[in-house]
Structures are given as structure tokens and as C-alpha cells.
Design a protein around this nucleic acid. Structure first.
Lengths: 136, 136
DNA sequence: ACAAAAAGTTAGAGATTATAACGCGCGCGG
DNA sequence: CCGCGCGCGTTATAATCTCTAACTTTTTGT
């Protein structure tokens, strides 16, 4: 039942080094802590705590911080290391499936999804394996 | 002009709709709330609360959630505002369709295609829209 | 229709964060 | 030399938010 999913982004602290990147980005823009605090809408000491990793996570302010600093949230969190692109349709029939799906009416799309889900499930169970076929 | 990304996160509530995207992405992978909860390491109800926007922000789990769902944090937060709308679909339901289609057995895939084609054709005729290329 | 699984909801405990206040170090002018 | 402003780090406290557990409702499958 338990799925060891930690293969992708598991090891250690996920948000390690966030403060450092915040500080670097801030200085890069020539802002003081007070400036950033003002831009984000928090107190100056809050910024100081972010940058010293005293506040493990930065709550919802992350998005505003990224906005004020002109960087992406992804960069603040990961440092832009583990860039992983989503998957795109590969074969022609898959693209066709997609096009048809888009052309359907809302209700029909729902129907298609449910049908597909049932069929897929059946296939998975038939194949004997767990749900690994639906991964990545 | 030195704002590569800063322009995106400028307006209003930044984290609106996070829950919806989490739920869509989860379903796209054919996971239950319990599965995602297991993968992230929290309780099932926590996931339910994320998806219903009851827990305003998702704290540091966002990174783990994104990892378990195979999407980027940026997508969960911003919804990938600037995505290309050409052929590559990253919307959750479309990805779901694709994923399920792939998981189906050969015969079932053919069946899905036929069904989709029929429904799509009906929709086109109904909506009076220009008949696009639904072949292939 | 019925049973089971999945999802939604609530109350409460626990943990985390923002704020305010204080201290430290540095540069500058009188 | 001393005081002053400035930028920054740190601590204690109050407020906030999130997670867990248990229950209810909805959906799914036979």
C-alpha cells in the first residue's frame, strides 16, 4: 500500500537555502531589507528572519517575494536545479485523441474521461502490476 | 525591462485556485486523495482541505506536492499563465485524458478514439463551428 | 438498491510565523 | 572621541495557520 515516492524531490530539506537566495536577489536589486519588507507588506524583521532561515517556510508570501524580486518562485525554492518538463503527446494517435477530446462538448468530455478511466483501470488490474503504469 | 518573470505575479490573489490545480493534477495521475496523502506524508483530510482551499496556503508541502504530482510549483501557484497554447497541452484534464488513454489496452484505445471521433463530430455540427480537421 | 470507496466537513491540539523591541557593527561629521 | 543614522540579526510574545482524527455526504460498482 505504501508507495515510496520520494524518488524525485525527497532528500533532506526541500527549502534549504531559500533565505540565501532571497538575500542575494534582494541585494542584486539594490534593495534594503526595509525596501523588500515594504514591497511585500510585512515588517522588516520578517525579512531578516527569512534570510536567516529562521522561518522555515515563507508562507504565501513566497509569491509576493518572488514578484518583488523579479524572480520565479521555482528559483527561490529549488534554485532552478531540478528543472523537469511536463510530458507532451508523443505519437500521432495520441495527438488525435487530444484534438478530438478538445472538440467534444463539455458533457461528452466528462463521459470520455470516465470511460477512459474505467478502461485504464481494467487494463492495469489485468496487467497484474500495481498502479505504476500511471506514473510519470 | 529587467523583469523576466516579475510581470506574472502582479495582480490580486496570487494563490487563488491552487486547490483546484492540485485536485486536477492528482486526478490526472489517477491518484486518490489517500494516495497523494501517502506520497506527501500527511493525512488524507489534509489533502481534502488543500483541494477545497480550506488551508489557505500549503506551506512547505507545496514542493513535495509538486514532486508527487509531477508538476512544477509554479504551475500550482500561478497556473502556468504564460503557457503556449499550441499543441502541447498541460491543462490537467487534457493530461488526464492522455494518461488514461495511454494506460488503456490496444483495443480499448481504438474504441476510445472511435467514440471521441463520433462525439466530436456531433459537437462540431451542433455548435455550428467550422469543421476542423478531426481526422487522422 | 446496497455496500464500499472516495471526497467533504468539523472541532481541537499543535506548531509556526509575524510583530515589536533590543543589541551589534559600521561609516561619517563635528 | 562621541553621537548619530543606517542596515541587519536576534529574542519573546501573541496571533495565526495547519494537521490530525472522527463523522457525514456523495460517488462508484455489483
Amino acid at each position: 500500500m505504501t508507495h515510496p515516492i520520494g524518488l524525485l524531490a525527497s532528500s533532506g530539506d526541500v527549502a534549504a537555502g531559500v533565505g540565501e537566495r532571497i538575500r542575494d536577489s534582494r541585494r542584486a536589486r539594490g534593495m534594503t531589507q526595509a525596501d523588500l519588507a515594504d514591497a511585500v507588506g510585512v515588517s522588516r524583521s520578517a525579512v531578516a528572519q527569512w534570510e536567516t532561515d529562521r522561518a522555515g517556510q515563507v508562507r504565501g508570501n513566497l509569491v509576493r517575494i518572488a514578484g518583488a524580486l523579479g524572480v520565479s518562485v521555482q528559483f527561490l525554492l529549488d534554485g532552478n536545479v531540478g528543472r523537469r518538463d511536463g510530458e507532451a503527446p508523443e505519437t500521432a494517435t495520441e495527438m488525435a485523441m487530444l484534438r478530438l477530446y478538445r472538440a467534444c462538448a463539455e458533457a461528452d468530455r466528462a463521459f470520455l474521461l470516465r470511460t477512459a478511466r474505467r478502461l485504464a483501470r481494467a487494463a492495469v488490474e489485468e496487467g497484474g502490476g500495481a498502479a505504476e503504469n500511471l506514473d510519470t
